[in-house]
Structures are given as C-alpha cells and as structure tokens.
Design a protein around this nucleic acid. Sequence first.
RNA 1: CGGGGCGUGGCGCAGCCCGGUAGCGCGCACGGUUUGGGUCCGUGAGGCCCCCGGUUCGAAUCCGGGCGCCCCGACCA
Length: 480
Amino acid sequence: MSEQAVTAQSEDFSRWYNEIVYRADLASPSPVRGCVIIKPYGYEIWEGIKAGLDRRFKETGHQNAYFPLFIPESYIKREAEHVEGFSPELAVVTHAGGKELDEPLVVRPTSETVIGEAFSDWIQSYRDLPLLINQWANVVRWELRTRPFLRTAEFLWQEGHTAHATHDEAEAETLQMLDVYADCAMNDAAIPVIKGEKSRMERFAGALRTYTIEAMMRDKRALQCGTSHNLGQNFAKAFDIRYLTEENAQRYCWTTSWGLSTRMVGAVVMTHGDDKGLRLPPKLAPYQVVIVPIYKSDEQRGAVMDAVERLSRSLDSAGIRVHIDRREGQSPGFKFNDWEMRGVPVRMEIGPRDVEKNNAVLARRDVPGRAGKQFVSQDGIVDVLQSLLVDIQRSLLEDARAFRDAHIQDVETCQQLEEAVAAGEWARAWWAGSDDDELKVKDDTGATIRCFPFEQPGGAGACVLTGRQSKRIALFAKAY
RNA sequence: CGGGGCGUGGCGCAGCCCGGUAGCGCGCACGGUUUGGGUCCGUGAGGCCCCCGGUUCGAAUCCGGGCGCCCCGACCA
C-alpha cells in the first residue's frame, strides 16, 4: 500500500470496505475467483459469532451434526421451487477418481435435500420429534458479483434443520431461531436489526415463509444478516419425511431451516467502521485491549516492560483478551493508528511517566481524539477496563441504532418513496402490491422490500403503489 | 451473456505512442537514528515484463492469436 491512510468512507464506501478488509488483516485474496482466504484476525471474529450462536443453539435444545459436502444431483431436483432457486449457482462435480461419475455431484449450496433424506430415515414416530439439528459447514454458490464476506462463491455458515409434528410447532421454532439471531446480532455484534417477514419474491426457494433480520450499514444500504424459514411440508413431501402419530396415523412432518453466515463479519465491519477503519464490538474483538509500550532508553524499556507484562497478566486472568504490541521497528504513533485501523476497542499506553506515577493511559476506539483518552491508576485498572468494555459495547449499539433510525422515512406516495430511496434512505410504507408491483418498484427505484417488520403501527393505510387498503407496512431499501 | 478497462518484483503503479536489455512508491531484510499520534538516513534482497507466434541485429514496447482479471448492466446468505 502506498498511502498510509485508508480511503474515507464518505469518499468511496465500497473502496473503503475493500481496503479495510485487506489492511486490517481480516482476509486476503485467493487464487480462486470469487473466494477469499479468511485470515486469523478475521476468522477470530467469526469464531466469536460462532461461539455465541452455538451456545444459544445448545441452550434451545439443538445438536450439531455434519452432512456431506456432495449432494447427488437428483436430490436437488426433488423439490421443484428449490431447484429453480438454486440451479443457476450450482457447482457440479462430474469427474472423480479419473473417470466420469454416473451421477454428477452437486457441491452443496445448502443442505435441505441431503438432510431431508436423512430425516426421512431417522424419523419414524412422534416420539422422534421434534428433531433439532444444526451443522457448521461451508457451502458454495457460484455468484457472479462477489465481495469479501458479503458474497463469496464459498462461505462458512451454520444451517439449522428441524422437523416437527405440527405447523404451529415449526412456526414457533422458526420464530425462536430468528430471535436467537437477533439476540446474537444485538448483544454480541452490537448490530441493531429489524425482524420481519420476507415478501414472496424474496422468500427462500421452497419455503412457506421466510423471516429475516435486516441491518443498516454505514452507507445506509440494507444487509440481510440471517434468515429463518418455515418450510411447511414441502421438503417433507419431497423427501418423504413422515411420522406415525399416537393414533397410529402417517403424517408428513413440518420442517424448518435457518442460517447465518460469515457475511455477519462484513456486517460488523460495515455497521461500526469509520474513516479510520474498523470499530469492533468488545464481545467479538479478537483483542479487547492492546498495550503499546513507550520507552527511549534500555533502562526505561526494562521498567516499562515489567509494568506492561504485569498488567497484561492481570487483565488476562480477569478474562480480558489482551495483546502487547512488542514490535520494535514502529513508533508508538504508528501503532496507535494501526490498532485503530484494526478496530481494537481499547488501547493502553504505558510509558516511563506512567511507570513513575503508577498510571496508565486508556484510549477508547469509539470516541475519537483526546475525548476518548483517560489517565487512570494501575490499581484497580481491571475493573475500569471491564466497565469500559461494557460501555463501548453499549455505545456501538446505540450509535448504530441512532444512525439507522435517523435514516428511515415514512412515505405515502410513490414519489416520496422514490425520493427517499434516491437519497439513500430506507422507506417505510403501506403495501398491498403483487409480485409484479414489487418488481416495478425495484425497476423504478432500485429498492426492494427488505421485510414486513414484526413491529407494525397497527391500523390500515393506502398502499404506496396501488392505493389499495393494506394492514401491513413494508420496509424498502437498496440492499447488498 | 452485452459494453468499457487492465495484465510489469509481495502490493500499487510508471515505462509502451517514439523499439536499445527495467524503474518508482509502499512493503521486506540488515545497520544506525528515532519513539507520549503514521521518524529519518544508509545498505540490500527480490522481476519467465500474462502466454504463444511473427517483424527486427535487437521487443515490456510494434503486429497476429490466445488466456486471465477487474469495472458497468439481468440473479443473490
């Protein structure tokens, strides 16, 4: 990189995003088109998300399992809408072991089909229900336009798959898992999300209903962060997932699936990042505190490093993820900027003056400049840091929420909708349109229905396009 | 798949019009200097100039062909 500073967000958001992803060491380009290498610093953010989700999955009674990467082509074709939805983006293995395969193998774009087939074996009676399974896996979707984390040909995710005796149980599961996602987004990633239902157009291929959590990025575009699908009996019928009731009757199961991917890492970057780079929420930050030692002479170095090591140990034993920047070649000023770019929530400076006074300098990433700096005693610094980290987590969420709420407009006419979207804002409007109407809005404005939010104003109003009375409002935005 | 651009040390680029055997910034290594907001100086390592063919005494440069990538329009966690 020739220039030292990253491109400003305001100047060119997508350039900012690309630069920060590479310069903050989240990812590096891969030799394969559309794929990226996730580097340790980026992967640790994913691991944080993963740990939080996995804990919640277990708490709600799910178990992890693993299904094959390869899916017989015929499986994909068993559910009509499903094939149609996915076939353009499938990667297919036609040769293996030096010869052509009898039946091509699809590299999974998602696993409803293989898992459906397995479920039909596993489930015999109502006693086997509900069946609550999750898998952590990679999937492949041959996308045309790719961007690191947001859309790559291969990505990591979890996919939950469950089977239930009744529609209502499946629906409750679908909604419960959406809540789990929303909880993870808000409390771990500090991303305020809007829960809602997808329109028919945006629904998962083969689902009865799709629910989503939608977030606003710093460029005001919408990002779908996770989805939960009530699959009805579509896959149960396609894969013959049946159970025997207490009354000895054969019934099809009701199934669900839900997924959240490494896209969430991109969401963290784009929700909190500023002109200087990343701002990581403490709960997900690989390093919550970075200590930058400052010294001139060797004797200063000895005294400073003693204090640094001691402080590091006490933070570590308090469960704070701490890192000492021991690099010799770089000046403190360089290190300050470097760690700010990499989004570390708190920087601790320890220099000769601090050693002398038993002090330390703390600088919080979410408050720029001197205002974010404080001088504290080394005694009791662990407690100070603990509450500082909690406060940073809270303030990132609040900032993001305030930003989002300031950029959602209620609109009543087509023209207002168009103007709002043209200004980059989200628009909220009554909606009673058809699929074609929805397409028309997309053609005219570039915005799509992100969701019908669960939180509705109540009452009824005139549809923004058709003028027909509607009881639902929809959220429109340009999306990733 | 239609329109535009680009392939030159790890990264970003210049050189190409006007052929003469490759350069700059960053990064990297070593030494020194500096270190409380992106130090400075010196030395050094590192290049099938995308590939194949042609023209020429001589090709990164000119000509022909191929490949790859990026950007913009129809799909998407």
